[in-house]
Design a protein around this nucleic acid. Structure first.
Lengths: 172, 172
DNA sequence: GCCAGATACATCCATCTGGATCAATCTTTG
DNA sequence: CAAAGATTGATCCAGATGGATGTATCTGGC
């Protein structure tokens, strides 16, 4: 059985939906992350944050988490990096001294426009196999998944130890 | 503008397809990875490798890369971890001394069955917003994307430095 | 006003990641 | 058979990641 046949078999298993999404995303990430990191010397999440900041001037770190589900310290570091590079400014809110409102500088907007152009071309490349109609159908279905409560609030994968840890090293 | 409105606006931008897929995947990974790592004390890629090994006894490390697009050393480490835990065996191929054929032990098959059950339940949770028909439509469209040449072989994001690195630290 | 708890963000640190390199083995060519 | 190159997988190391914790600020009860 060659590799393509193995892949086909996985895509007929009971986990086919997750496996297929996983396959697409791992493959796309390898391409995209490497490009952003090598070309712009920043982690992908830094440009995600920049995207959010350019799109919504004055956005707070906490709000970015709602747009790109990431741990809080990831946003913190990204904002710090972007500020060091002169791409954004952080201004402490007058109303609440804990909040830092984020604004892109002109350099930040220029850089975002450039990466955004590359991303749009990449998107076109990735979705090339679909017609315009198919893209909209795919988008609508994906949006239903995103809107579902199960995406972020899990019942099936709540954290708790099971006896399945039996085969681990005894490093409790 | 609240967070939901911000998200809606992003999903109307020119990058809406990538952003939506990214949103779903980041959200799902946060849930899934944390569960696998905490419950089974292994990185997600280790269980992906175990899945491949149980499904295709005697598979080689290189072939796993075709199923789960990951760097080669990731598979190496995963195999090493699984062997340490007694979940798989590595047998050097008689025909080619470089190749190591991978086989699950009984403990490995038992553990995989358990994680696989959890994954199927998670898949059901994630895709709950879609009807059976919609799931198949989604699957067919996603499969077209996966089969497209642009997923793994990029033209638009080939690696090369641009003048956009101008705003970085001078750490060439 | 004072204190306990909540909230926003930064930082610490153990672990994970992946590009580069290394070691072993196989294949090809003469 | 010897040598060069290809292939498979292991290891090294610099940097990224994220849970836990720390710091500053705000809010509510008294």
């Amino acid at each position: 059985m060659n590799e393509q046949e193995k892949l086909d078999e996985i895509l007929q298993s009971d986990l086919r939906y997750l496996m297929l999404v996983s396959y697409i995303v791992l493959g796309n990430n390898a391409v995209t992350n490497r490009f952003i990191e090598q070309t712009y010397q920043m982690p992908v999440h830094a440009w995600s944050a920049l995207f959010a900041i350019v799109m919504f001037p004055g956005i707070r770190a906490k709000e970015i988490r709602a747009l790109f589900p990431r741990p809080q310290n990831t946003i913190s570091r990204a904002a710090s990096l972007l500020e060091t590079r002169g791409l954004i400014e952080q201004r402490t809110s007058k109303a609440d001294g804990r909040e830092k409102k984020l604004y892109a500088t002109q350099a930040g907007e220029a850089l975002l426009a450039e990466i955004r152009g590359a991303s749009v071309r990449r998107q076109e490349e990735l979705f090339a196999p679909l017609t315009d109609d198919e893209r909209e159908i795919f988008f609508d279905l994906a949006r239903k998944i995103a809107a579902g409560p199960g995406l972020l609030d899990t019942v099936t994968m709540k954290i708790e130890k099971t006896d399945a840890t039996r085969s681990q090293d005894e490093t409790s």
